[in-house]
Design a protein around this nucleic acid. Sequence first.
DNA 1: CAAAGTTCTAGAACGATATTCTGGTAATTT
DNA 2: AAATTACCAGAATATCGTTCTAGAACTTTG
Lengths: 212, 212
Amino acid sequence: MPSLKSPSLKSRTEKARSTQPEPDKPSRKRDILLAALDCFDSTGVELATIGDIQRLAGCSVGSLYHHFRSKEGVAEALWLTLIEDFNDAMLRRMKKAKDGQSAVRSVVAGYVAWSVKNPKSMRYLHARDIDFSTAGSARKKELLDQYIQGVFAIFAPFVRSGELAELPLHAYVPLISGPIEAYVRRWLAVEAPSPKQVEALFAQAAWNAVKG
Amino acid sequence: MPSLKSPSLKSRTEKARSTQPEPDKPSRKRDILLAALDCFDSTGVELATIGDIQRLAGCSVGSLYHHFRSKEGVAEALWLTLIEDFNDAMLRRMKKAKDGQSAVRSVVAGYVAWSVKNPKSMRYLHARDIDFSTAGSARKKELLDQYIQGVFAIFAPFVRSGELAELPLHAYVPLISGPIEAYVRRWLAVEAPSPKQVEALFAQAAWNAVKG
DNA sequence: CAAAGTTCTAGAACGATATTCTGGTAATTT
DNA sequence: AAATTACCAGAATATCGTTCTAGAACTTTG
């Protein structure tokens, strides 16, 4: 569970060393990702130059290319890091729920909260046109599946108890968070009333969509 | 209402000539857009080179730059053309509905139908990170608003009759098409069960979300 | 119909910038 | 401490977006 703010991003030496998981330590790698987020957010991935990122991160080209294979590599790593953060935050929040209804509602609330707190990151998560490598693409799918599984694991008991409807596995996430996701995307792109204003309405809709 | 398949894309000479609106005529401009869609879809906007597009379209660099200001200009024009096509198709379909419920359901059905028929185009519509010029950005907002207005114009009578709930203007579109949109995006990105399989379920959810 | 203008096309030249290369310094392991 | 590895720097290179020059194909106008 990497994070840009309370970081880990341990260099994946495959043979897991016995040292503790390197709790934080301000790393060059993270500096680069942080700088990249700013650059990508303000000008888009394409227009942001390696020079911009490198300058803002306070490192050299060589250093940047030591940590990442390419500019797209940075873009990909950034996206994967952010989605992992986001998924963690969401699942953590959902796990606190005691019943199905509050679990479902917490998804909408969590989505809004995270977006309002990290608009740049959320905007970047919505931005596609990041050319994922085959490895990155696989990782992305893996994380996505993992999230869906995680959600379902939380929901399963409530489905069994009949509080939640029994639906195709892939239907829960879009049914619950599709509307708020669409709303937030629009809010991030152009100016629109804050998601806070429709949170309750969308939470209710989410609940209606999946209740038993 | 331009279209890539049954085309118009008339060269906007501002002083509208008396000639009929140039019904189709295979134009160089369209060839370029078509080629661009293929290139952008297979490698992403960034990695697609002007050379690729130009070669596939069978034209020269000069010609391409005569019709568009830049590569981003091509990407922007393509996006705007496609969204216009899509919006037209959706509104046309919705207008046929006689009552609120079938109008709402037609949104979901229309979304699925268009996506299944034009996956490349829909994938491109979902791709952000197209650096819109100020003009393009304005046009985009204009089209988006126009669509929302159009949807509301169709729904208004049903809202007045009480068949549909009275909600914030910006809530209808995400509530109705948010889930299917999220589902389709995932389907287009990685492999997943066809949207056809959840169409009925999502149509029902859409209806529940906005019925009076 | 001829001439003048305009649109469209071509491809070479240019400039910006992503990426590679060479060489070096700190850290870690043996 | 020697060796190996991780990390970093900046110059050199290669790729590609864009501009420029020139000319062909239409369109309009006298």
